[in-house]
Design a protein around this nucleic acid. Structure first.
Lengths: 169, 169
DNA sequence: TATTGTTATACTCTATAACTATA
DNA sequence: TATAGTTATAGAGTATAACAATA
């Protein structure tokens, strides 16, 4: 057998390359879960907010400020969550006076969601705290490794995106 | 200002290094969510099982076969899920005849959970399908990048673990 | 007293489908 | 007909606390 050829695993039929895929994924998942668990707990105790609502606020905050907010459909696409779920999240955020629904002057079916001034201030605080928690968690990680990780994840992400883009075709 | 010194971001007070932490985390999360979403949907349609139950079966399958299964508490720790939740997962898996509860001869408070022969066979199929889905998703990723990713995640993981281990002290 | 596991409860997220108002 | 959003519902994950049996 030529050197470098992936050798099969007799028990599972997996090649060593398949195992690299799988192990990388499991490791990625473990890291993501550990960090997400921390962040979830801290967001809840510090601000009584969930990750889903935090992410929604982040999308609104990030949206082009010269733009007029985002529609429900836009939020649904960006958060990769179904329409009905966005409605529930927005209901909650409206109740907390962090966002408002406005009628779209151009399309009477559509609603435009905007951060209230209060919501923008609140999110700024959350966002800063969030960043500092992450900094704390990544404290011990070698900067060179982290930069490499950042670059390598970019390729994984675009590769995954290419996959999902092909699904409909 | 000396070269290489992280420069502050006047608007947020974040240094460029903080931003690397944050951006790496967001990228990591996006990748994990994209893959996890795929896997969740496929596990459900192919085997009518959730990721939580799949992970639980994986822990039992992975446990030293010369060992006698795992206790509820062991599962709770390994899955990083609370005790009550493990009970519910096991209830469901027992109902599907994939695992059994056995009394611990050494500790009458404890239960030992084991895969049934049927459960072991079923998990083998799921596991193979899972591996092939991951291989498919990682198909377009350069092998060198993937190896680098695998190594870099190792350091992140141990660094995170060190953090969480310190919490109790 | 501490630990193992169960039960009960509340909240949230996710997914689907039926429905309305409008385009 | 198709699209934007809402409503209703079911299933699942997560967290907490009270509890019984046992160590």
């Amino acid at each position: 057998m030529p050197e470098g050829t992936p050798r099969g695993d007799f028990e599972t039929g997996l090649t060593t390359d398949d195992q690299l895929d799988l192990r990388t994924w499991l490791r990625l998942l473990t890291c993501a879960n550990m960090i997400e668990g921390e962040v979830r707990a801290k967001l809840r105790t510090a601000f009584d907010i969930t990750i889903a609502r935090f992410d929604l606020l982040a999308q609104l905050d990030r949206a082009d400020p010269t733009d007029r907010g985002l529609t429900m459909g836009e939020l649904s696409r960006r958060l990769m969550v179904t329409n009905g779920n966005v409605t529930a999240l927005i209901d909650r955020l409206v109740g907390e006076k962090l966002v408002v629904r406005r009628a779209d002057p151009d399309d009477r079916r559509a609603q435009i969601i905007e951060l209230t001034p209060n919501g923008r201030r609140a999110f700024a605080k959350m966002s800063q705290a969030h960043a500092s928690w992450i900094t704390g968690l990544f404290d011990g990680v070698d900067r060179k490794n982290l930069e490499a990780l950042y670059r390598n994840l970019a390729e994984l992400k675009t590769s995954l995106k290419a996959d999902s883009d092909m699904e409909g075709h």
